[in-house]
């Protein structure tokens, strides 16, 4: 019988993804004042992973969260999934771009803020182009981005505090 060889990193990814998925699902039960606004607390796991283990691990965690989370919630390949996937992809691209900057690295707060904003913008563009290309939707965009900035800051500060603790 063959066993699939797993590395320590695989275990780490699985553990972190499981944590992110748990937060993701818990959050989906929260009522939302506006469609699309969620605190994005799973972002905390992403950013912490990024700061400790790097982009590759963080990307795995994010993608596992989106796919497995949607499977568990029964939204896989649904419009909700498309939005969540685009948002995740946008935030990963943004984080990747931020990592490319030479010199002093951004801290968790900067990463978190960029990730949250890219996530929201990505979701919004997907929602606008794929589902409701109505100009009225554009009015929501500034509100959603304000929420993204707020939640991005809060989760960033949480991660920063967490990291300080670990050290």
């Amino acid at each position: 019988m063959n066993t699939l060889a797993t590395t320590a990193e695989d275990h780490r990814i699985a553990l972190l993804a499981a944590l992110a998925i748990t937060i993701h699902i818990a959050e989906s039960a929260l009522p939302s004042p506006l469609p699309g606004i969620k605190p994005g607390l799973a972002n905390i796991v992403t950013i912490a992973t990024l700061c400790i283990y790097g982009l590759r691990t963080a990307a795995w965690v994010v993608m596992l969260r989106v796919v497995v989370g949607s499977l568990l919630l029964g939204t896989f390949l649904s419009p909700t999934f498309a939005l969540s996937f685009t948002g995740a992809l946008a935030s990963l691209i943004m984080l990747g771009a931020a990592r490319l900057i030479p010199g002093q690295r951004l801290g968790p707060v900067g990463y978190s803020l960029l990730a949250a904003m890219a996530h929201m913008a990505g979701q919004f563009i997907a929602a606008y182009w794929l589902f409701i290309p109505h100009p009225a939707l554009l009015h929501l965009f500034p509100i959603l981005m304000t929420a993204a900035v707020l939640f991005g800051l809060v989760s960033g500060i949480i991660v920063a505090a967490m990291l300080k603790h670990i050290q």
């Binding site: 801290g107 803020l113 500034p142 900035v149 920063a160």
Partner: peptide, 26 residues
């Protein structure tokens, strides 16, 4: 590590500056 680095502050400032622009544009 600082809790918030100087680069972070720049990002925060830019994000906050972006918001009024978004409201005026949309």
């Amino acid at each position: 590590t600082d809790l918030i680095t100087r680069a972070d502050w720049l990002v925060i400032a830019a994000a906050i500056a972006l918001l009024p622009w978004l409201y005026s544009a949309f």
